[in-house]
Design a protein around this nucleic acid. Sequence first.
DNA 1: TCTGGGGTCCTAGGACCC
DNA 2: TCTGGGGTCCTAGGACCC
Length: 406
Amino acid sequence: MEKKQRQILHVDVNNAFLSWTALDRLNQGEKIDIREIEAVIGGDESKRSGIVLAKSMKAKRKGVYTGETLYQARLKCPNLQVFKGDYKSYRKHSNDLYKILLQYTEKIERFSIDECFLDMTDYLGNDTLINKAYEINRRVKKELGFTVNVGVAHNKLLAKMASDFTKPDRVHTLLEEEIPSKMWTLPVSELFMLGKKTLPKLYNMRIKTIGDLAKQERIDMIKKFGKHGLLMWEYSNGIDNSEVNYLEEKPKGIGNSVTLPRDICSKEEIEKVLLTLTEQVAYRLRRYNMYANVVNVQLRTKDFKDFSHQKKLISPTSNTKNIYDLAKELLNEMYKKGTFIRLVGLRVDNLIEKDEMQLSLFTNEEDKKQEKLDKVVDELKNKYGYSSITRAGKLNSEEIVRLKDV
DNA sequence: TCTGGGGTCCTAGGACCC
DNA sequence: TCTGGGGTCCTAGGACCC
């Protein structure tokens, strides 16, 4: 029996951070709509995080692109206006969008803060997929005040490629019969999951368009690039059988990292930063009701060399002290005296849910005490805000690490 | 005034076991 | 003298995404 053809939409907010900040400013009574001028949402140069996070159409036309430094962007666009991002507000706008989309299907995968996949297969009624796409596009603009692109297709990959065609405020289809005309003609760099490391290798093989890639022998792509080769080959041919993952998923890992306002070169200073990062990570871990099995410490040197070490915990934990102790151990292993460090990161991985863990013949008295302490601290944080409570050893590092949103 | 921060998944080598 | 091979777990690093 042939399987029913799937009906998939991809909804992508146009210039999300910039549009949302534009709306917030208009709501606060500002006269200028920053979508209409040469503007970007950017990081903070004084904190050495001065990159472009989102740009207006006018800035884009001057050649400004996401991820480049504000310095480079200003060279191309001297009148560029730079605004700060507000993640709390972005989450709210994202949720507003989600609520509208829920009226069309419950099978929604929130792919990122500004992108969703919708599985409409069983939710079309007598309507067509493309009508639904236009309706969503119109309603979001009218009810929320920002615009979206909607991609219409029969799998996620094609829907995502379609929503990336001309912007803003558009609906595009990418049906099987349209693949040669609409997708194979594009530069191969436009293909989803094809990054800047792979691109030069393909150019060396005289592969310039997605169509060139699609014409390769499948087996050759596997031989040259392994699993990733197969993926690229399938994507270039419009093949993607992955499901819309609409069920809320627990995270697989939780991390926090920070670029320091100045490079540091003493283990003691790095430890203080690690403690601040650990507190935040462990707090989030406990809010998910999960335990970690692995701790990972990442360092970036002043000349942008990244390295990391990781280790399994003796037993799964969500306790700040256990994680911090192992993090210090890892730092000890990996840190060469005198190296200038630009970024410090801490993540926990191989997470399990608390109830999966047999509680526990082995939990010792010290751990139980720690757990109680963490709980008290968490409750205060929940009640009075994350930064309401802090421990003495950390105070110094707060001059270095500004507290971030949790 | 160069170059964020949060993730997921994959690969490859070594240890260890049968 | 010769010197397996399959499987799993652990770790470091890298590619890619938004």
